[in-house]
Nucleic acid binder design. Structure first.
Length: 496
RNA sequence: GGUUUCGUGGCCGAGUGGCUAGGCAGCGGUCUGCAAAACCGUCCACAGCGGUUCGACUCCGCUCGAAACCUCCA
């Protein structure tokens, strides 16, 4: 029980035991970004959430294929030209090729995800590269009788589908409500029913992104790419499909219907949804003028920000909440996250220092502190309980207390104890939570050597009680954002 | 209006029918040349009203409040 992974399945809204369909393989598909704007905090949340899932499944030994798409085509813009394409609209404004825009923002996305230490998925397919697969899927749905063709466009027939299957099972919606509550938009008169959605749209003459198909020159409907690409790379039945909660309806609901209609059965075993990031209690969005890009977070250049926040601070901030909860952004919360994370990393460095000084006075070699295996077990229990990263982090802080107590000589840990503790941090803090120490990486060895020299000189001045020199060194370093800490076994340094 | 998710201490954020979440901030101590850090101790909770129960922050109902989705949006 305690060594088994449970996942909250949106379909059942319950925690279910994770049993992969074809162990030791595991397939996961996550809805990726639409690349028409700079990545913001809202992009970071699902990327980090499913990075955590990816990392943990890998750690458990699964051979994971993680597919995350790039949407570079296919989203309709309802409030502009009907049938237009979001990327094409922006392109026309800026007088650039649509693919140029998509490429630019896809690259930006990759850069910022890398800085957040989000592992690259196994495959990152683009919708524009899978038009044939999408056309094939539309054909399958038409042949199965769950779609109709109007004037070169193809629509999914919700009423027909609902006779055999339940449209709305994922989001809890009822078709009757959809009938009465779906707003009737202009230009939707081709639809037989307001809830029907486009599988293929005929392109207007001025529409730039278009492809030939059996029905018309046009482009695929919004929900199709994920169904086509997930099943192409993961098979007709795969383990996990993830995404933001805002995609539950209609996107994922429609994916279920498309796969059911085209393949004859559903394609996803576990649905996972991360909750939203809010700013001052509201979802961020362009229209609200409150969205903050990742670049603005890293540079501190947005008016709502008191200071820059590093990528790892953002990552830690997100992981400090469970993926199923909303997290509300504030400067106070981010500053607190930053301090907490630094404390965690500092303790790890303390631990490494203790291990590197093992040649010195003998530590008791054998007695193993039972708190340490218990801690490891508690860490696994947290992750197995629906990827509960906040509990995992709380457990690691328990480890921090043990480490610091030992460093303070309040208690003694044996060498195996220290090594085990280090193993826990290596595994959970770095491999699974995916944090990393941001202090200078390339020149790390050089800087460290210089600092050891400076600290040695300062130590001499302290021994002769030359407090002026000692404080001068410390104060000057502080201006360079380097903090010197005087401990019982000499001084150590770290970045502010 | 419908669907879904929530309302926890100064801030963020877990969790549970009776047993300490954790972080940040505050307060008191220990340590220290001073400082920082660290360690120990400590204050501040479970929106409101009913109900079930030996006992509810945790279950049920209602009220109030918030968010997301229902139209592209992570």
């Amino acid at each position: 029980m305690e060594n088994q992974l449970y996942i909250t399945n949106t379909l059942s809204r319950k925690k279910e035991l994770f049993e992969p369909i074809n162990p030791p393989f595991a397939g996961m598909y996550v809805c990726g970004p639409t690349v028409y704007g700079d990545p913001h905090l809202g992009h970071a949340r699902p990327a980090i959430t499913f990075d955590l899932v990816f990392r943990y499944l890998l750690h458990l030994g699964y051979k994971v294929r993680y597919v995350r798409n790039i949407t570079d085509v296919g989203h309709l813009v309802a409030d502009l030209d009907e049938g237009d394409d979001k990327i094409a609209v922006k392109a026309r404004v800026e007088q650039l090729e649509p693919m140029e825009i998509a490429q630019f923002y896809a690259d930006r996305y990759f850069i910022f995800m890398d800085s957040l230490n989000v592992k690259r998925p196994s495959i990152e397919p683009r919708a524009s590269g899978h038009i044939i697969e999408q056309i094939n899927m539309v054909s399958q749905i038409v042949e199965a009788g769950y779609a109709y063709i109007e004037n070169g466009s193809v629509y999914f027939d919700i009423e027909k589908y609902s006779k055999s299957y339940q449209y709305g099972k994922l989001s809890g919606r009822i078709l009757d409500d959809l009938m009465t509550n779906t707003r009737v938009l202009e230009g939707q008169d081709e639809k037989h029913h307001p809830a029907d959605f486009a599988l293929w749209k005929k392109a207007q003459p001025e529409h730039i992104m278009r492809w030939p198909s059996p029905w018309s020159d046009g482009f695929p409907g919004w929900h199709l790419e994920c169904s086509a690409m997930s099943t192409k790379y993961l098979g007709n039945y795969f383990d996990i499909h993830g995404g933001g909660m805002d995609l539950l309806f209609p996107h994922h609901e429609s994916e279920i219907a498309q796969c059911q209609a085209a393949i004859g059965h559903e394609s996803v075993k576990y649905w996972m949804h991360n909750n939203m990031v809010t700013i001052q209690g509201q979802k961020m969005g362009k229209s609200l003028g409150n969205f903050i890009t990742l670049e603005e977070f890293f540079t501190g250049s947005h008016r709502l920000l008191d200071q820059p926040y590093s990528p790892m601070t953002i990552r830690f901030f997100i992981l400090q909440a469970h993926y199923g909860s909303t997290i509300d952004f504030s400067n106070d919360a981010l500053a607190a996250a930053e301090k907490g994370m630094k404390k965690l990393l500092a303790a790890y460095n303390t631990l490494s220092g203790m291990l590197s000084q093992q040649d010195g006075p003998a530590r008791p070699p054998s007695p193993v502190d039972k708190r340490i295996p218990e801690l490891r077990q508690a860490c696994y229990a947290a992750m197995n309980d629906d990827f509960n990263s906040p509990i995992l982090i709380a457990n690691l802080f328990e480890g921090v207390r043990i480490i610091n107590s030992a460093a303070d000589k309040k208690e003694v840990l044996s060498l195996p104890d220290l090594q085990q503790m280090k193993g826990i941090f290596d595994t959970f803090l770095f491999d699974i939570l995916g944090l990393k120490d941001e202090k200078g990486s390339d020149q790390g060895a050089t800087v460290d050597g210089l600092m050891q020299l400076i600290l040695a000189i300062r130590q001499k001045s302290r021994e002769t009680k030359d407090w002026g020199t000692s404080d001068q060194i410390r104060d000057t370093l502080q201006k360079l954002h380097i903090i010197v800490k005087d401990g019982k076994e000499g001084s150590t340094w770290g970045n502010e």
